[in-house]
Amino acid sequence: MSQVRVAILTVSDTASADASADRSGPVLQGLLTQAGYVCTRLQIVPDDEIRIRTVVLGWCDQGDVDWIITTGGTGFGAIKPLLEREAPGIVHLVLNASLQATPLAALSRPVAGTIKNTLVVTLPGSVKAVQENITALLQAGVVNHAIELVRGGSGQTVHEALASEGVRSPAPPPPPPPEAAVEVEVTPAPVPAEGPVRSPGSVRSSSHRHLHDHGHAHSHDHGHGHATPKPRSVLSQDPGLPAHARHRESPYPLVSVSDALLTIIREVQPLPAYEEPVTAALRGHVIAEDVYAPHNVPTTFSTNVDGYALRCMRLEPALRSSN
């Protein structure tokens, strides 16, 4: 496979004002260059979703970048809506590598997928996290294989190599360490003076033993049973309830747009028309037919005084058509 062309986008308000504050971008570039990748672009943008999407879509449209990596910022919210195909396996790989270093990685939200013929991966902003995640992505040729598939390749060489290795069985877990011997002294429960006498074989519903540091064990019996756990909330189909209290699946069948329009036409009846004097009480009413003035008002052109009334729609750069 030919050399992989990489573009790095650092998302940081601080670094966008002072490029010398960018730490993760240059480190990322050095790691990739050392691994044999060609870093064609290194850019810094503020933490603004529109700016992030504009740069990423522009690189993907040009078609001369194989892999886009963002570091820092709100990569999750800006990049995920742009992905045409998500790559959850790469996300799991990145999270697993981070979780082995720190439990705080559970709070990160990496994103991976493809836009056109470009692989896009978002990474955190810290240098430590960038080094850990890139090491995981480059091991065993994961990224190279992904980019080959994005380019339209079959990955036959990799698949044949995996087939030749045979089936790999996971290593058995190590045996648990031997438990230290603990001297246990059992004190029989006293028999009440009154009440039924229990036979040695009688057992109550539950028994709890508590071991203390001095090696003695005390057994406490409770006569209560344990009921099957029940859900704390009951989901409903009421659309007026908040989302967390409603079922995820609607009880109503899906219908086509044409069937829905026919249902609306069949069920909705127009309101009757009636005459009313023009007063303030007509607020909220709709006229039954168009009303035209008997002559133009004003009678002459007066745009130099009245001006024009315009209505426009602003299109965000990231949502404009590439055509």
Rank of each mutant, 00 (worst) to 15 (best):
P124D: 01
L123N: 03
S169V: 15
H218Y: 10
E183P: 00
V150H: 01
P177H: 03
V127D: 04
V120R: 05
V127M: 03
E179F: 09
L211M: 14
V120Q: 05
V142W: 06
P190H: 11
A112R: 04
A181D: 13
R209K: 09
T157C: 03
Q156V: 12
G125C: 05
V130L: 01
V197E: 07
A181Y: 11
A180Q: 14
S205C: 12
L123S: 03
V143Y: 01
A217T: 13
R151V: 02
E132G: 01
H145W: 10
R204L: 12
N133W: 00
A136E: 07
P200V: 03
A217F: 04
E194R: 13
V182G: 01
E148D: 11
S154W: 05
V121S: 08
V111H: 07
V130C: 06
P174F: 02
A189C: 11
S164P: 02
H214K: 03
E183I: 06
E183D: 11
R151H: 12
G201Q: 12
D213V: 15
A161L: 10
G113L: 03
R109Q: 09
G152C: 05
P172S: 07
G152E: 01
V167E: 13
A129Q: 00
E179V: 11
I134C: 07
H208Y: 15
Q131I: 10
P173Q: 11
T187G: 09
S169Q: 15
S206K: 15
G125V: 03
L123H: 01
S164F: 07
P110A: 06
A217P: 00
E132S: 04
Q139Y: 09
P176E: 13
L137A: 03
E148G: 10
H218S: 15
A140M: 09
Q131Y: 00
V186N: 06
E183W: 02
N133R: 11
T157E: 12
A163D: 09
K116V: 02
K116H: 09
P196C: 08
H212D: 14
S154C: 08
S199E: 12
A180I: 09
P124E: 04
